[in-house]
Nucleic acid binder design. Structure first.
Lengths: 131, 131
DNA sequence: TATATGTTATATATGTTATATTACATGCCA
DNA sequence: TGGCATGTAATATAACATATATAACATATA
């Protein structure tokens, strides 16, 4: 169900897991109402600790992507729960500024920057039915 | 000379320092040949440890931004030393994909994504003589 | 030679990440 | 009701990252 975890990566396991689930939602492989495996089940499947999965679920709940219920597990929220707002967009812009700065510093002009950003966005839809 | 370090930030000091120096180069406040303060001097100025500054300098050296000489300190490289290559651009696109995925997931359409990316790039030039 | 510099090494402290184990609270269902 | 699966919480341990402190070493330059 989920892409594998790269145990050799610098990126923490719980973050990789978050990214995988967000990608699943973006690709509409995980639709609102979809029930995710329990923390114990997914932990067994991925061969990681229960708390590592629980941490990812909790953070995704805080971000609005999931609702977590005792005895029912984690469920994907309707998009209205995590639709982009101005706070998110401001934060996103601030993150991107760090990358834009280094890119400009390395001689990447505005057009090429936009081209790379465009490629990144379009890479989502490749090999999936998203959008 | 350098913007202050936010000691309460989640971002490690050495990373903030790297971002500050890269921003300085991007804004052409730090031009090729510019000599940076010695690790001990800058550490005193910022009230951080010598090794924290040394780590930032070493990583910036590895990225091609600085040359570090015994007895002469750190010097800003000519842009040819850190001009964007395909390896860098591939890595950048991979990083941006993570942000693009979450944005799309939150309902940000291609046009709005590009708009935010554009804003981030343009924010560089504001309040500076860059470009 | 004396000095300033980057570099290396060691030790300590704190926070993060991850695992392991145990226990508790809750809702479901046979 | 009683059992079960679930999320949650607490504690302990280990490894690693971050940051500081101190000291010593190597080297280029005045």
């Amino acid at each position: 169900m989920f892409t594998k975890i790269d145990m050799t990566s610098d990126t923490p396991i719980y973050q990789q897991l978050m990214e995988n689930i967000i990608r699943g939602i973006a690709k509409q492989e995980l639709t609102p109402g979809t029930q995710l495996p329990s923390v114990r089940t997914l932990a067994d499947e991925l061969e990681v600790n229960m708390h590592t999965v629980a941490k990812a679920y909790t953070l995704l709940k805080d971000k609005g992507f999931l609702s977590v219920h005792r005895n029912k597990g984690a469920v994907v929220n309707p998009q209205s729960k995590f639709a982009a707002d101005s706070v998110y967009l401001d934060d996103l812009r601030k993150q991107l500024l760090v990358y834009a700065t280094e890119a400009a510093c390395r001689g990447v002009k505005a057009g090429e920057w936009i081209s790379v950003c465009n490629d990144a966005y379009e890479e989502l839809s490749r090999s999936s039915d998203f959008m």
